[in-house]
């Protein structure tokens, strides 16, 4: 009986604490339910020509139409970094995990969330260039967590909002890359 009473009391305390935590738990925390972002595009150019543009980690400012500028640090080594400032505001501070020119691929992740840049709390991503007929295919995929990882995220920090923003950012980037490499438009 004593245990039951104590448990009930603890549950009450925990409930009050939980309500408090739900309201204050950092929106920037890594969450429990990841979401996918999956974009790809074909480009009428050889993989080496595409890699020459997209392979430089800090060079995203030359091909991504949403990027105002990108500053690199450490080159394309496995601890290389880039600080990407978006035209619409906000910055993405990202670090390389792996960079493999032979396989024309690199993997990286976000260091600290900036909800103004993208409404997500964390992500990791991989960009890969492969041969596709006479041209190339570029895949840009990732795993991210919504902007508010709590149980009742506001609409602009939900899974749906994160999915829309991440797919738009990756998709627009690939379109910009294609346009630049194929020589049709300068972003």
């Amino acid at each position: 009986m004593r245990l039951v009473t104590r448990s009930a009391f603890l549950a009450l305390i925990a409930g009050v604490a939980l309500a408090h935590i739900a309201a204050t738990h950092g929106a920037l925390a890594h969450g429990p339910t990841p979401q996918k972002v999956d974009q790809s595009i074909t480009i009428a150019a050889k993989p080496d020509a595409v890699w020459a543009v997209v392979g430089d980690f800090a060079g995203i400012g030359t091909w991504h139409p949403a990027v105002a500028r990108s500053e690199g640090q450490g080159g394309n080594a496995s601890d290389g970094r880039r600080r990407v400032t978006l035209k619409a505001g906000g910055t993405l501070d990202e670090g390389l995990d792996e960079w493999d020119a032979a396989k024309r691929t690199y993997s990286y992740r976000l260091s600290d969330a900036d909800l103004k840049a993208l409404p997500v709390s964390s992500y990791s991503a991989t960009l890969t260039v492969t041969p596709d007929g006479d041209g190339s295919k570029v895949e840009w995929i990732g795993r991210f967590y919504r902007g508010d990882t709590g149980n009742e995220p506001p609409e602009d920090l939900s899974d749906a909002a994160g999915k829309a923003a991440m797919n738009r950012y990756f998709g627009d980037g690939l379109k910009g890359l294609k346009a630049l490499v194929e020589g049709k438009v300068t972003p």
């Binding site: 448990s7 603890l10 549950a11 925990a14 939980l18 935590i21 738990h25 149980n151």
Partner: peptide, 27 residues
């Protein structure tokens, strides 16, 4: 484990009734 609650809860496998709780670290 209660991810955003930073605790671990023991519940009945049959009913889900809370049997106890312990505070742990974050996430």
């Amino acid at each position: 484990g209660d991810w955003s609650g930073d605790r671990v809860v023991r519940i009945s496998a049959l009913t889900g009734a809370v049997e106890g709780s312990a505070a742990v670290g974050r996430d």
